[in-house]
């Protein structure tokens, strides 16, 4: 390989998988538990129990992971260059939020090859609410040259409980960052991977190669084909099963069924079979379950909840703790 070639390789923007790899190793160096995606469909990395459950209690926690975000109603049959029914977020949660978190975040952009002195990086007010999780927080969307690349949120409540200590959540939009770094105008043109054949010819696999057909098929399935009757039935069954788990004192399995409820609801919504009043009722029942899960998790698993900051060792100690945190039912204004 000539030195000229070597240079051209070095200055090429990172592939999609290299971006993920860079973030994984960056946050690993920051002491995060590098988790894998959850096995159940979620709309955002916040739903992963590594965020929703783990950020409820008082124990310190650092985690980072890729999360596939499944949003059936956002599918566009693979025809829109910006919208996808299934895409990836890179999620980082740190509890308590460190004082230098903005600087650390900026370092992570440098780790992706972004020269901060040549770009315009901004923190622009954007507060977050998750009505189905009874959750909200304050923070920013981060702009790079006018493009929103990350959501930055200080959680204030989860499941209706005040967060204490407060978790910082960073959610990178991986496709947006890849488009930005690679200078492509369609998500399907993102270079996912690249390698050189033994003969010297270069092979490129794009995001479109990997996912465009999926987008076509799932858009058609979600919007036109899915069995609404089955989904309604599933919603009711999952809801009942979540309640059974709660009754059995098992918040983590219960939460799995909350996620399944949420996904069934999203599928029904995409199918266009939920009226507006139904919508409100379904969201309310998911939120209600999420609140109960949060309460039970604090009671059973975290062994005390936010009041008990030294509960590090009591993960499985089944301490019964009645924690009547205020505010659990007072977030209606944020929903």
């Amino acid at each position: 390989m000539t030195s000229a070639n070597a240079r051209s390789v070095v200055t090429r923007p990172p592939t999609y998988q290299a971006i993920i790899g860079a973030l994984q190793s960056f946050w690993e160096r920051q002491g995060c538990v590098v988790m894998q995606p959850y096995h159940t469909e979620v709309g955002a990395g916040t739903f992963n129990p590594a965020t929703f459950l783990r950020c409820l209690d008082a124990r310190p926690w650092r985690a980072a992971y890729v999360e596939p975000s499944t949003r059936p109603a956002d599918g566009r049959y693979g025809a829109n260059p910006f919208r996808l029914g299934h895409y990836y977020q890179y999620q980082v949660v740190i509890k308590p939020s460190p004082p230098d978190i903005q600087d650390v975040y900026l370092q992570s952009l440098q780790a992706l090859g972004i020269d901060l002195r040549k770009h315009d990086i901004r923190f622009v007010e954007d507060n977050w609410e998750g009505p189905t999780l009874g959750a909200w927080g304050q923070g920013w969307e981060v702009w790079a040259d006018g493009m929103e690349i990350t959501q930055f949120t200080y959680f204030q409540q989860l499941g209706g409980f005040d967060c204490d200590p407060v978790t910082i959540e960073l959610t990178y939009g991986l496709e947006r960052i890849a488009m930005y770094l690679q200078g492509v105008d369609s998500v399907y043109d993102i270079v996912w991977s690249r390698w050189t054949e033994p003969g010297g010819s270069e092979r490129v696999v794009t995001y479109g190669d990997v996912y465009q057909e999926n987008e076509r098929e799932f858009s058609r399935y979600n919007f036109e084909v899915s069995d609404a009757g089955m989904l309604f039935r599933h919603f009711a069954e999952f809801e009942a099963e979540a309640q059974r788990c709660l009754d059995a004192g098992l918040p983590i399995p219960a939460y799995d069924y909350v996620l399944k409820c949420s996904h069934a609801f999203n599928m029904l919504d995409a199918r266009g079979v939920i009226s507006v009043t139904d919508r409100t009722a379904h969201i309310a029942s998911v939120r209600d379950l999420a609140r109960k899960v949060a309460a039970l998790y604090l009671e059973v698993v975290a062994g005390g909840g936010p009041e008990d900051a030294d509960a590090e060792s009591s993960v499985n100690s089944h301490v019964n703790h009645t924690d009547d945190k205020p505010g659990s039912a007072t977030t209606a204004g944020d929903a």
Binding site: P81, K118, H119, D120, R122, D145, M147, D185
Partner: peptide, 23 residues
């Protein structure tokens, strides 16, 4: 647009903003 960056870097930043608006 109003930038918060080094004005000397404007060419690249303008390009980024143009792409966002085009989208």
């Amino acid at each position: 647009y109003v930038s918060n960056a080094d004005p000397a870097a404007a060419a690249l930043i303008t390009h980024g903003n143009e792409r966002v608006l085009e989208g």
